[in-house]
Each structure stands twice: as C-alpha cells, then as structure tokens.
Design a protein around this nucleic acid. Structure first.
Lengths: 126, 126
DNA sequence: CGGAATCCAGCTTGATACTG
DNA sequence: CAGTATCAAGCTGGATTCCG
C-alpha cells in the first residue's frame, strides 16, 4: 500500500526544522567533532539555550552523538552518528534545490522579498 | 571553494516549512489540479485562512499556479508549476529518509515521543 | 565549561465572522 | 465559492540568571 508518499516528509522535516538545526548539522558535517563552546563560537547568533535545545532534539533522534568527558572544566563533544550521516545526501539534495531556486527567482525577476529570512538572518558565517 | 553546502538548505526549507505546505504539495502532486474547495476538503483540519496563506506563499515562490475562472460562483484551480515539479524528487528524498527514520527509531527501541507532532497532528488522512 | 530555569516578545496558527 | 478581516491562543526563540 504505497499510498501517501508525503506523510513521512513531515516527520523528516521536523528533524531539519528549527532555526538552527541546518547550521548545526553543517558544522558537524564539516568539522566532524565539536565541543559545545566551539559550536557556540561558530554559530555566533545562537544562544546557549537554543544550542542546547536543538542538540538535545538531534540527540533524541539519534542524529548526533554526545560524548561527555568527566573532567573539570567539563568537556562535551558533539558529532554526527553514523545514522545522522545518512542525512547528508538529503541535505545536499535540499541544498541543490535551494541553489536552483535562488537562480530561478533571479531569472523570473522575482526580486521581491519572497524569503524574508534572508533579511532577518543576520547570521554571518553561512 | 565548495565551502558551506548548507546555506541554501534554509532557503529551500523555508518553502517546505509551514504546518501545511507538505500536505498541500502532496495533494497537488497526486491530484495535479485541485480547486480551493477540494484542497480544503482533502485537508480537513486546515482553515481557509491558512490554506489561502500557504497557497499564496507557494505561488510567490512560483511553486504553484493559480488559475482564476471569472464565473459565478467563483472557481479557482491550483496546480504545480513546471518549476514546482522539480521539488518532487526532493520531497521523495525527504520522504524516503523519513521512512527510514521511523524504522530506525523502532529498531533503537526509541519508543518515546521524540516527535511530538505525531501526537498533536490529529490530522487524519496523511 | 556546559548547561538548566525563568521570563518574555513576537510570530504563527486557529476560530470566527463577513464579503463579492 | 473563495476568499478577507479581526481577534485570541500557542509556540518559538531570545535575554537573563543561576548552578555543578
């Protein structure tokens, strides 16, 4: 019964959605392993609260691994799980479409602010 | 410089994100062309306001086409644009990952409510 | 250092009513 | 039929403070 091919889209989207999840994932993809403070530093506009919350959600979904070193000062490292790495091709597909979309909007002379986030995301590095 | 492969992910995600966008897209993918009232009927929990708003956004992004028939009573039909159809493989990729994810969670015995939406989405058909 | 807890502003969504 | 307008509720994300 291959009925509704979109139901799981929402399931998957919930994992990727959230203002900072893509950025966090990107960091972990490109840097492999990062400490909490490193993530925080690389994502200058995120608050601890949000970084913690997003990481927890990703951890609950078995996308990221949280390694705690019992030392003082505390040291916690985050990395993608093997399973989390299966998201990479998906993110690439989404990213590729996103690039085409930007071009498409330019071609269509749709220069209006159709994607307000581009304006609000003063986040710099990505 | 294949630096940040995620920047456009957010651009793309904005288009797919929104409580009802995936459902609307699915409807238009599987039914090709639908009237406003048909969409409304197939998405029982959506309000006119939200349906209108989401369709407007998709229209602004050139994902859906809005065809107005000047008759009484009014008749408005929605369909995917050719460009909007380029989203289909992306949605399929996301959906495929979503399916694997559900299986993965089951295997991991992660039977906790990691995706709260499953509880809140009392929407039925999808 | 890596959080947790609290409080709060704003946007998103929903309910309801009205219209051409 | 296909919306628009208005108002209320809820959730998301941000600022701040405190803790082991």
């Amino acid at each position: 019964m291959e009925e509704t091919p979109s139901c799981r889209v929402e399931t998957a989207l919930e994992i990727l959605t959230g203002k900072w999840k893509p950025s966090i994932l990107l960091e972990l993809i490109t840097h492999d392993t990062l400490r909490f403070s490193e993530l925080k530093r690389n994502l200058p506009n995120i608050t601890q609260k949000m970084l913690t919350a997003q990481l927890r959600e990703l951890e609950l979904n078995d996308i990221v691994h949280r390694e705690i070193y019992q030392v003082v000062p505390p040291r916690v490292e985050y990395s993608l799980t093997d399973y989390g790495k299966t998201l990479i091709p998906v993110l690439n597909a989404i990213n590729a479409w996103g690039e085409k979309h930007v071009e498409h909007l330019a071609q269509k002379d749709m220069l209006q602010d159709t994607t307000p986030t581009l304006a609000s995301s003063t986040s710099d590095s990505f």
